[in-house]
């Protein structure tokens, strides 16, 4: 491998935490979804690194599945974003607190 596996994992961890921070701290729904995307990509990095470390192609196959799933997920979430925007007129996540106790 070109770099130690640990370094790849560290990189993936960094990306993941950044995506997490974005999803947690931002109020705009779109930005939350973008945070999710970053996290998913971080996972993809880890998977590819693993595949390279153990010299098997299965990690990459899983990355493909990941991308397919992400597409599906994005499609529906963005459709819902449109729907919510149409219903409420806002995309601020804090405004959607109908489940509050």
């Amino acid at each position: 491998m070109i770099v130690p596996f640990a370094h790849v994992l560290l990189f993936a961890a960094l990306l993941f935490v950044m995506g997490l921070g974005c999803a947690l701290a931002r109020r705009n729904l779109i930005m939350i979804l973008i945070g999710v995307e970053i996290m998913l990509n971080a996972a993809a990095v880890a998977l590819v690194g693993g595949s390279a470390h153990w010299r098997q192609v299965d990690g990459q196959v899983f990355v493909v599945f990941l991308m397919a799933m992400t597409s599906a997920e994005v499609a529906i979430s963005l459709a819902m974003v449109v729907y919510l925007r149409r219903r409420r007129g806002t995309l601020e996540a804090d405004k959607f607190d109908g489940m509050h106790g």
Partner: peptide
Amino acid sequence: TLGCTVVLIIQDPSAAASGAAYHA
């Protein structure tokens, strides 16, 4: 979280080794 993850990653000795490059 990052700190914990980093510590976990570093302490694994097997992850530090690097072998030949791989190409699929």
